[in-house]
Structures are given as structure tokens and as C-alpha cells.
């Protein structure tokens, strides 16, 4: 996806979603055919929420809320129904739509990036480096994925592309040692921002989660308040397991923000509704492609609109 696409979050999300063709409201009018809202209409909406990976609990709550208002005759037609759904989703997400604020008092401000394999951590780091580098911050990247072959080189390419500095050791090195060195070195270089990569790991792998705790602890030895941000990267194409990811990464290392990646496909990322409902973790950014610029701050209303409306009707 070209990085000079529409710049607004909503336009981009909508553009991305519309390429998939099928969205929540697409065809809903046709299905409901101007009838009054009835059980079948709600059921259709329910199906669509479930297909957006919202999960059973959130979907049932949203539909139940709508059903009550329908019963009280507060919703007259399909438009009112969809508007109410947009509002409800926005209300659920607004409290967690908190942008990441880099507190310049920390020299450097440290972001630890965690997530399961293939969620898009390294690409996200490239995008963050691009964004904050462009803001004039001196950025250092820590090549903390010492497990996967060529992961160090991969983040190295991003460092070169974005003008960030790189702290790396060889593949196979102790990731906690890399983190420790990186923070010390970033501090010595007078960096404003340190972004530390970690190897992907499934949350069920207890020894690897333990390793992650150690990385966090070790950062705290250099600077007791570090890391200032623990970003969990979640792949929007994933289903209900993403909730377990959020729960367990949070329990292990205290997640302070989420990035939802791969929203440029047809996946809706509805699981963030369940995460917002249950864990109330701030959602910082969304990833919309492979280029450094395919990145935006999370916006609750825009996300809700994109989820419900999809392409312009």
C-alpha cells in the first residue's frame, strides 16, 4: 500500500476495509429491506459483529443493548440502529484511545515492544522510529530479538532507513544483556528514545515469558522507571486468542499500550473490543501496511465507523 495514500485515520481505514468489499453494513440495508427492525435484523448484525472477531461476549452485550432500545421503540429504522451501534462501540473504545506521550523528562524514554511471533513487532518499531525521528527525537533501536535468524539484520535495515542508531549483539546473545547494554548506551549517547525489540513468543511458553520478565527487570536496573512504555503488538487478523495474549503479556510484563497491526486487509480487529472491555489497556496505534508511513494513532470514533460502515454507501 503506497504511503502517500489518504492521510486521515478514518479515510485510510475505510479505504483499506473497502478493498475487502464485505463490511459490517454492506448489504445490511438490502437484507433488511426497509422493514422495521426485528429479531432477524439484530441477528444479522450479530453475525456481522462475530465475523469481525468481536467475540461472543462483546457481541452479545452490544446486541442486547440494541435490543433493549428497540423494545423501548427508541430505534425506528436501520439507520438509527447502525448509529446506535457506532455510538456503543465508540463509547467502549473512547476510554482506551489514549495516544502515546513521550515524556522528554526521561533520557531516554524507553519503549519495550512485545508480542507473539509474526505479529509485526519489528515493522512497528520501524514505523515508530520513522515517526519520532521525524519529530526530531534522537532514536536508538535495540536488536533484542536474538533468537530468530537475521532478526538483528532486519531491525538494522529499519535503523538505516529511518536514521535511527542501532545497538545489537550477535544472534544467540542474552536478550536481557542486549537490553541492558542498549539502555546504557542510549543514555550515554544522549538519546531521547530507546525502542527495544524482543523475540516473538507465544504466551503459553512460560519459560519465554519468564525471559521477557527478566528483560524488563534488567531495564529497571539501569533506570528504575524504565521501560516507560510496554507496547504489545497485536495482529488484527487473529481471533479470540488475541485476548489471551493481552491478558498474559499484561500479567507478565505490565503492558501499557497496544498496537493493532495489519488492518489494511479484510480483517476487522474486532478483538480489541474484548480487550478494551476486559483489560482497558490503552490502544496507541494501528498499522495499515508495510511502509514506514502506514501507521496512525488510534481513534475510537473512526475505528467504530470503519467497523460499522465500511465503504461509503
Amino acid at each position: 500500500m503506497p504511503s502517500d495514500a489518504p492521510t486521515g485515520f478514518f479515510q485510510r481505514l475505510r479505504a483499506a476495509f473497502s478493498r475487502g468489499g464485505e463490511t459490517l453494513s454492506a448489504g445490511l440495508g438490502a437484507v433488511l429491506g426497509g422493514r422495521k427492525i426485528d429479531a432477524a435484523a439484530l441477528e444479522e448484525l450479530e453475525t456481522r459483529l462475530l465475523q469481525a472477531d468481536c467475540g461472543v461476549t462483546v457481541t452479545e452485550e452490544l446486541i442486547e443493548g440494541l435490543r433493549k432500545r428497540v423494545a423501548r421503540q427508541q430505534l425506528g429504522d436501520v439507520d438509527a440502529l447502525l448509529a446506535a451501534l457506532r455510538e456503543d462501540i465508540t463509547a467502549l473504545l473512547t476510554p482506551v484511545a489514549q495516544p502515546l506521550v513521550i515524556d522528554r523528562a526521561h533520557q531516554p524514554f524507553t519503549i519495550l515492544v512485545v508480542g507473539v511471533n509474526g505479529s509485526g513487532k519489528t515493522t512497528t518499531i520501524g514505523k515508530l522510529a520513522q515517526r519520532y525521528g521525524a519529530d526530531g527525537l534522537k532514536v536508538v533501536l535495540a536488536a533484542g530479538d536474538t533468537f530468530r535468524a537475521a532478526a538483528v539484520e532486519q531491525i538494522g535495515v529499519w535503523a538505516t532507513r529511518t536514521g535511527a542508531e542501532l545497538v545489537a549483539q550477535a544472534t544467540g546473545a542474552d536478550p536481557a544483556a542486549v537490553a541492558f547494554d542498549a539502555l546504557q548506551s542510549a543514555r550515554a549517547r544522549g538519546a531521547d528514545l530507546l525502542i527495544a525489540d524482543t523475540a516473538g513468543r507465544l504466551q503459553a511458553q512460560t519459560h519465554l515469558m519468564e525471559e521477557l520478565r527478566k528483560v524488563r527487570r534488567v531495564l529497571g536496573k539501569v533506570d528504575p522507571s524504565a521501560p516507560q512504555e510496554v507496547l504489545l503488538v497485536i495482529d488484527a487478523t487473529q481471533g479470540q486468542n488475541a485476548l489471551a495474549q493481552a491478558q498474559q503479556f499484561h500479567a507478565a510484563v505490565g503492558v501499557t499500550g497496544l498496537v493493532l497491526t495489519k488492518l489494511d486487509g479484510t480483517a476487522r480487529g474486532g478483538i480489541v473490543l474484548a480487550i478494551a472491555r476486559q483489560l482497558k489497556l490503552p490502544i496507541r496505534f494501528v498499522g495499515l501496511g508495510e511502509q514506514a508511513g502506514d501507521f496512525a494513532e488510534f481513534d475510537a470514533a473512526a475505528f467504530a465507523r470503519a467497523l460499522v460502515d465500511g465503504p461509503a454507501v
Binding site: T237, Q238, G239, G265
Partner: peptide, 12 residues
Amino acid sequence: VDAMAGQDALQS
């Protein structure tokens, strides 16, 4: 395909 994939696995 990722075992953790959601509903969209059908489309892809």
C-alpha cells in the same frame, strides 16, 4: 496459516 487466525482466515 496461523493457528491463531480469526474469522478472516476464511477470506484469505
